[in-house]
Computed example of a mutant assay.
Amino acid sequence: MDTLKAMLILGKVIDSGNMSSVGRELGMSNSAVSQHIKQLEKHYSMKLINRTTRHISPTSAGQILWQSAREISLILTKTQQNLTALKTEFSGVVTISLPSASIESPSIKRFLLQMNEQYPQIDIHLLPDDNVADLYKDNIDIALRATEPSGNLIARFLTQWQLCICASPTYLAKNPVNHLGDLVQGTWIHFNNKIFDNAFATMGLGKFSANKVIHCPIISSAKSLALEGFGLTLQLYGDIEHYVENGELSVVLPNGSLPTYNIYAVTAHRNQSAKINAVLSVLKQVFK
């Protein structure tokens, strides 16, 4: 027996005082309505209603269940209203995890400006994190990733960015890089073994190796050190585009065969609330 359903039916019967009207409202026969109440009485081993040919009234036990049924009905109604609002209202907080270096990218700045113009009631919480965030555990709405997501996550393609070697003009003036052999002689600001090994292998240099290495696990900090002239590093072009255009960073060996990365907006579920769909739409626009 569905106890909750039977309680709600009992509540409607006591409210209306008429089984026939409740049956018509719910699309049930009178006998089906009566059967639900009988099962409920059997479940609690108590008589719940007093019934005459003209009147239905609750017993003391029925009064208790009737009050509980009214409270449950109000909760269900409020829940439905909240869920409906979630589907239609463009307001609230949306949490986005993204690589630390992307915080200053032109794409993210355009995204924030456009969100403020189009959806001022949506508050964006940016969480810079160079690790792969757990969308379920960390309560994250959207993750921007440069890798193909695994498992049941839903990935929406945004764009493709080239990985590039960069350094400040000051560093390169003292340590020019004219061919691949110069790379291993330089000072490198290193943040991830897999990315650096893959880049060197793609260029035919084997595993990553350098004359001097500064280890810095945070990608944005590696970029900052490169801007200050401490050495070479790897960055996605979309994250350093404005520094290159301003002349603060230079791309080294731009014709080299470094890998490209697809950038995705990843969510835990395909169906999303109105506010998250709005954010995903703006992300697609600005990265496109």
Rank of each mutant, 00 (worst) to 15 (best):
P128K: 08
Q285W: 07
E241H: 13
S250F: 05
L227I: 09
A268G: 08
L74M: 15
S150R: 10
L40F: 10
S100W: 00
S68H: 15
R156L: 04
M203E: 04
S150T: 15
V184S: 09
N175A: 00
M7D: 08
Q121Y: 13
A32S: 15
L205F: 00
S150I: 12
D239G: 01
L10Y: 02
L225N: 03
D138A: 13
Q121I: 08
M46H: 14
L76Q: 11
G181Y: 01
T84G: 14
A274G: 05
I263Q: 03
L48Q: 08
V252H: 02
A199R: 11
A226P: 13
N131M: 10
H215D: 14
R70A: 15
N277H: 12
D129R: 09
Q114M: 14
G204C: 01
V279M: 03
Q118D: 15
I276A: 01
E248S: 14
S16C: 08
D197N: 15
I219T: 15
Q39K: 13
V213M: 09
K212W: 08
M115E: 02
M115A: 02
K284I: 01
S105N: 03
L227F: 03
H269C: 03
N198V: 06
H125N: 09
L158V: 04
Q39W: 07
Y136G: 04
N262E: 08
I72C: 05
Y119D: 11
S168Y: 04
N82D: 13
F90W: 08
V22T: 02
K284R: 14
E89F: 00
S97D: 12
I154N: 05
Y119W: 11
A278Y: 05
F191K: 01
L153D: 15
D134W: 04
P176D: 06
R51A: 09
D239H: 06
G17V: 10
N262C: 11
T159E: 11
V266K: 05
A69N: 01
I108G: 03
L10M: 01
M46S: 14
Y237K: 14
C164I: 13
R54M: 08
A143Y: 06
S250I: 07
L4M: 11
R54N: 12
S273W: 03
L153S: 08
T88R: 07
A173H: 07
E25V: 04
K12H: 07
D197Q: 05
N131L: 12
S20N: 09
M203Y: 02
L172C: 12
G11A: 07
T52F: 09
K87R: 13
R145P: 00
A210G: 02
T187Y: 00
A143M: 11
K207W: 14
I165P: 05
H125P: 02
N152M: 14
D239S: 12
L113Y: 09
S100V: 07
I37N: 04
Q162Y: 05
G206N: 04
G27V: 05
I124F: 09
P106H: 05
